[in-house]
């Protein structure tokens, strides 16, 4: 997504001029990122991932984002990224809610080699020493916690983590120094990781 940052501004201009193709490109752009994050979240759950990839979740996300862009005309790339990141986070929270737990859709799908508990880490996966969320519940918690961050930190997480901009691109968009971006990004990661444990 990072290399498309410059294109975003151009597409926004075209969209404001009434170009529907530009609108579609902007939505596709965000959906691609959503797909990456969803895969990351579900990669420990082969049985739901296999199922999810044929699900209509992305169609739903596309529809949702289209609707959001219909109702609000993004004034700037920054506005667009904020809007898109908010939508992506919401879809991911819904997705995790939909699959985890005894009543989650994933628990009714069987995959050879996986356990019976949809939230259990598959037996053959290596333990992960990083602080990355290990369960769908933890991912849901993570995305909800992002929403509670102070605005400046939340926006940095949205730009760097959700939208995958580089620090230089984020600094340019926000009109701050790269150093400031680094500091906010660090504070946000620290705060999030402390909460997530």
């Amino acid at each position: 997504m990072a290399e498309s940052f410059g294109q975003t501004a151009g597409w926004l201009d075209l969209m404001r001029a009434g170009d529907d193709t530009a609108r579609t490109r902007l939505v596709e752009h965000s959906c691609e990122r959503l797909r990456g994050l969803a895969r990351k979240m579900l990669r420990r759950y082969p049985k739901v991932r296999r199922w999810e990839e044929t699900d209509d979740v992305f169609v739903e996300a596309v529809t949702r984002l289209h609707r959001a862009l219909d109702s609000v005309q993004p004034e700037s790339p920054r506005h667009f990224y904020n809007l898109a990141a908010t939508q992506i986070r919401r879809v991911l929270v819904d997705l995790s809610r939909r699959y985890y737990g005894p009543d989650g859709l994933g628990s009714h799908h069987d995959t050879v080699g996986a356990g019976t508990d949809a939230n259990a880490v598959p037996r053959y996966e290596r333990a992960d020493p990083s602080g990355e969320p290990a369960t769908l519940a933890a991912w849901k918690e993570c995305y909800e916690q992002i929403m509670t961050l102070p605005d400046e930190q939340r926006e940095i997480v949205d730009l760097l983590y959700i939208s995958q901009l580089t620090q230089e691109e984020a600094a340019k968009m926000l009109g701050v120094t790269v150093r400031t971006v680094r500091r906010r990004w660090r504070e946000a990661r620290y705060r999030l990781q402390k909460v997530l444990g």
Partner: peptide, 26 residues
């Protein structure tokens, strides 16, 4: 304390490309 927490939070710094590779790898 901060460096210990931030090391655990390295996963947030990984790129989409890398994640996509993981998916392909799996």
């Amino acid at each position: 304390e901060w460096t210990s927490v931030l090391k655990t939070a390295d996963w947030m710094c990984r790129r989409a490309d890398e994640i996509a590779d993981e998916t392909l790898g799996e």
